[in-house]
C-alpha cells in the first residue's frame, strides 16, 4: 500500500507543478485579454478558445488523428530507412563517404521548400505528408544510429573477435544494443519534428488534418478555431513526448544517464 502512495506522490510532484504553471499562464492571458479589450479576431481569450474546442471536439479530434497518423507513419518509415542506412554505412566507410553528403543536402533544404514540390509530384493525399515527416526523421536517426553502432566498447569488440564472432553476431549482440541510447535521443527530436512536417505538408495541400484547419481558419480570421488547432497540436506533441520518455525509461533501464523525469 505504501508503495502506491509513494508512487502517487512522485507522479504528483511531476505533474502538478507544470499543470499549475500552465493554469497560471492561462489565467494571466485571460485577464489581460479581457482587461485590454483585445479583439477576438486578433488574440482570443483562453475561455473562448476552450469553448470552441469543446463545442467541436469531434471535429478537432478527427483532424488531429489525421495529422497524428501521417506524422507517425512518416516517422516509422523515416526511422526504418535511416536505421537500415546507418547499419550499412557503419560497416562501410566507402558507403558512408558516398552517401552522407547527400543526406546532409537533404537535411539542410527547408521543408517549406520541399513540401509544395511533393504535392505537385504526389498529389493531395496523405502520401506527401507522410513522406515529408519521414524526410525530417531521416537525418537525426541516421547520424545518431551510425554513431551508436560505431561507438561500442572496444573491450567487448576485442573479446568477440577473439571468439571469431561473425559481423552479424557482433551487430546484434553488441552494436545494436549499444546504439539504443543514441537512437532514443534521435527519436526525441524526430517525433515532434514529424508532427511539424505533417502540418507543413497539410498547409500546401489537402483538406484534412490540423494543418489545413489552421490554413482555413487563418484565411477566415477565425482565431478561436486557429488557436484550438494549435492547442490540440500542442497536446499531441506533449503526449508523444511523454510516451517516448516512458518507453526510453523502460528500454534503457540499464543505462546510467539520468533521464529527465
Amino acid at each position: 500500500m505504501q508503495k502506491y502512495f509513494v508512487g502517487f506522490m512522485k507522479l504528483s510532484s511531476y505533474t502538478i507543478p507544470p499543470t499549475l504553471a500552465l493554469f497560471l499562464l492561462l489565467s494571466i492571458w485571460e485577464i489581460w485579454v479581457r482587461a485590454a479589450n483585445v479583439p477576438i479576431y486578433i488574440f482570443p481569450a483562453p475561455s473562448i478558445i476552450f469553448t470552441r474546442l469543446f463545442q467541436d471536439m469531434g471535429f478537432f479530434l478527427s483532424h488531429g488523428m489525421t495529422t497524428l497518423t501521417e506524422a507517425l507513419l512518416g516517422f516509422i518509415l523515416g526511422a526504418t530507412i535511416a536505421m537500415t542506412g546507418a547499419t550499412f554505412m557503419a560497416h562501410s566507410r566507402l558507403l558512408e563517404r558516398s552517401l552522407l553528403p547527400i543526406a546532409v543536402m537533404i537535411k539542410v533544404t527547408p521543408i517549406v521548400a520541399i513540401a509544395p514540390i511533393f504535392v505537385i509530384w504526389f498529389g493531395f493525399g496523405s502520401f506527401p505528408k507522410i513522406l515529408i515527416a519521414s524526410l525530417i526523421t531521416f537525418f537525426p536517426v541516421l547520424v545518431n544510429g551510425m554513431s551508436g553502432l560505431r561507438n561500442v566498447d572496444p573491450v567487448v569488440l576485442d573479446l568477440l573477435n577473439s571468439l571469431n564472432a561473425s559481423r552479424r553476431e557482433i551487430y546484434f549482440k553488441l552494436r545494436l544494443p549499444s546504439s539504443m541510447p543514441y537512437l532514443f535521443a534521435a527519436f526525441k527530436i524526430s517525433i515532434p519534428l514529424s508532427v511539424i512536417g505533417a502540418v507543413v505538408g497539410e498547409w500546401f495541400s489537402g483538406d484534412r488534418g490540423l494543418g489545413s484547419v489552421i490554413i482555413v481558419s487563418h484565411a477566415n480570421l477565425d482565431m478561436p478555431t486557429l488557436f484550438s488547432a494549435i492547442f490540440v497540436l500542442a497536446g499531441i506533441g506533449v503526449a508523444l513526448t511523454i510516451i517516448v520518455f516512458y518507453l526510453e525509461k523502460k528500454v534503457l533501464r540499464w543505462h546510467d544517464s539520468s533521464v529527465i523525469t
Binding site: D153, V155, N164, M180, D256
Partner: peptide
C-alpha cells in the same frame, strides 16, 4: 579463435550493461 580456445580479460571489465 575458431575453437574458442582463447579466454581474454582486460583492465576494464567490459561487461555489457544491458
Amino acid at each position: 579463435q575458431k575453437l574458442k580456445n582463447i579466454g581474454l580479460m582486460f583492465q576494464e571489465p567490459g561487461l555489457l550493461p544491458w
